[in-house]
Write a protein that binds this DNA or RNA. Structure first.
Length: 337
DNA sequence: ACATATACCCGCCATT
DNA sequence: TCAATGGCGGGTATAT
């Protein structure tokens, strides 16, 4: 936590461009402005703790990807000192990648900010500016490949909602940007304020950065796989309780194991075994969240076989053992926040 | 907790 | 020549 922040108004700047994703901007900024309001209500500060500002190449309206416009209060070169510098994502990132002026601005501004980062595909822009080399980062799951190309040395944590590496914060999709903003609030003012803000937004502030976006990712990859390997997904789900080694899947599709492996990887971006594990894990998660079955029974049904394997998979991918996970989801209702 | 066995999966090259 | 496919070896992750 920072001390003596009473006196300072911290400027949270979000950069946009033609075709930015409006929720990437408004979500996190809304979190910051709400936190500021709460602090003022509670008289924990005398001056506004945060000032949020949306900046673009030039002042004036900027069209988002949906066509809605957001008014940029100033051009990014007129920003002045910035506490937190964030870049939004959106379909316009492809074009924005070519923007030399944006690239140079990021390079000059990021080193001066207390922290900087991106929401969603904004990470691509940071990568282009060379700000992600050797760093641990996250981005929207569908753009992991692109990010790899732009920042080959970055360590991409594909499943994280958001990742913090020192002063650098990067988040996955839109809502993840709000989670990230809450985590920043927590860093600045403590967990209690973050929880209060989450509560008012009817959000859950439960996920430490390590929590995963598996289901969204898995669903997307399942859809990709479904297109390429018709019926395979349904069949796998039917037989989830049995061993599903690569040879068996390959057999189902009529391809050689080597070829199937390779195709699966290129089509879905995931290796077969990892996908199977993801499917087992998702199933286990819902069983744990919705029922009261013993762990052994859950483990058997979703194909982990025994509790030990279930436990290891949980820790590996979610960071918590299944029992703790169950307790947590049962406990986590808005009333607790 | 540790050692051993198994499965995965990716680079490499031959074949189609 | 090129793209798609199949098989092999072996380092690594996971299961027993």
């Amino acid at each position: 936590m920072l001390d003596q922040q009473d006196q300072a108004t911290r400027r949270i700047a979000m950069l946009g461009f033609e075709g930015f994703q409006i929720l990437d901007v408004t979500g996190p900024l809304e979190v910051f402005s709400l936190a500021a309001r709460i602090l003022l209500e509670q008289r924990r500060t005398s001056v506004a703790p945060y000032e949020v500002v949306f900046a673009a190449r030039e002042p004036g309206p900027v069209a988002s990807s949906s066509g809605l416009c957001l008014h940029a209060a100033c051009g990014w070169h007129e920003l002045g000192p910035v506490d937190t510098l964030l870049v939004s994502g959106g379909t316009g990132t492809a074009r924005a990648l070519e923007d030399e002026s944006l690239r140079r601005f990021l390079q000059s501004c990021a080193p001066l900010a207390r922290r900087y980062g991106s929401v969603c595909t904004g990470a691509l822009l940071l990568a282009r500016a060379g700000l992600l080399s050797e760093r641990r980062v996250s981005t929207h799951w569908a753009f992991i490949r692109e990010l790899e190309n732009l920042a080959p040395t970055a360590r991409i944590e594909a499943e994280a909602l958001f990742v913090r590496d020192g002063r650098l914060w990067t988040s996955a999709g839109v809502t993840a940007g709000m989670d990230m903003a809450l985590a920043m609030i927590e860093e600045d003012w403590g967990r209690k304020l973050a929880l209060e803000a989450a509560h008012r937004l009817v959000m859950y502030f439960k996920r430490p950065g390590a929590q995963r976006q598996v289901s969204a990712q898995l669903a997307a990859q399942a859809a990709a796989a479904e297109g390429r390997f018709p019926g395979l997904m349904a069949w796998m789900f039917e037989h989830l309780g049995e061993p599903l080694p690569v040879v068996r899947l390959a057999e189902m599709t009529g391809l050689s194991p080597r070829h199937f492996s390779r195709r699966f990887r290129t089509e879905t971006g995931m290796t077969p075994a990892r996908f199977v594990e993801g499917m087992r894990l998702e199933t286990a998660r819902t069983l744990l969240a919705e029922g009261r079955e013993p762990l052994a029974s859950v483990a058997r049904q979703c194909g982990f076989g025994n509790v030990e394997n279930l436990r290891r998979a949980f820790i590996r991918r979610l960071g918590v053992p299944p029992g703790a996970y169950r307790r947590r989801v049962h406990r986590e209702t808005p009333d607790d926040l």
